[in-house]
Structures are given as structure tokens and as C-alpha cells.
């Protein structure tokens, strides 16, 4: 079994109001060392079949998991057996 970790996050130049609200909340709690928070999404995909997997994940991202207008993505493939 393989575990694919897909991280999707807003592009750097795009304002993240949710992250800003979390930053403010952390500051209110006294965690002033945090300068910026960016909130993203994390997908876990499980599969036994890793044939051509890199290009298939890229295709999944492009077609569904990521809106390329506003989001960037990276992923890792781990052997979870």
C-alpha cells in the first residue's frame, strides 16, 4: 500500500483571509513569534498501483484537486505497507 500526500495551498501572491484570521487568533493567544499563517488543504490518497503514478497524480491535481488559477500543489509518495 502506498500513501500519497498531496498539499494544496494558495499561490504566494494571493491573499489568504483565513490565514490572516488564524494569525490574529494566534497573536491573541500570545504566540507572537508567528508572523504569517497560510491555510491549505491536505489530501491522503491510498493505492496499491503506482504504475505511472507521478503523471497520474499530476493529472488528478490538474483536473480536480487543484484550481491552478489560484492554487499550487506538491506531493510525496510513501510506501505505507
Amino acid at each position: 500500500m502506498y500513501k500519497i500526500k498531496v498539499h494544496v495551498y494558495l499561490k504566494e501572491n494571493i491573499l489568504d483571509p483565513q490565514g490572516k484570521a488564524v494569525t490574529n487568533a494566534l497573536h491573541q493567544l500570545g504566540f507572537n513569534e508567528v508572523q504569517t499563517v497560510r491555510v491549505g488543504k491536505y489530501f491522503q490518497l491510498f493505492t496499491d498501483n503506482v504504475d505511472d503514478i507521478e503523471s497520474r497524480i499530476k493529472s488528478m491535481c490538474q483536473k480536480l484537486l487543484v484550481n491552478e488559477v489560484i492554487e499550487d500543489v506538491d506531493f510525496t509518495i510513501e510506501n505505507a505497507a
Binding site: I14, P17, Q18
Partner: peptide, 16 residues
Amino acid sequence: LEAGLLEGALLRNEGL
């Protein structure tokens, strides 16, 4: 927009 019939994207409102 998601279907690609229009250009751009819609983000969370600035004030949340």
C-alpha cells in the same frame, strides 16, 4: 469558472 467557461476564480471574501 470551475468548468473553464469563464476566466478567473472566486476566493474567500476578504473579511471572511
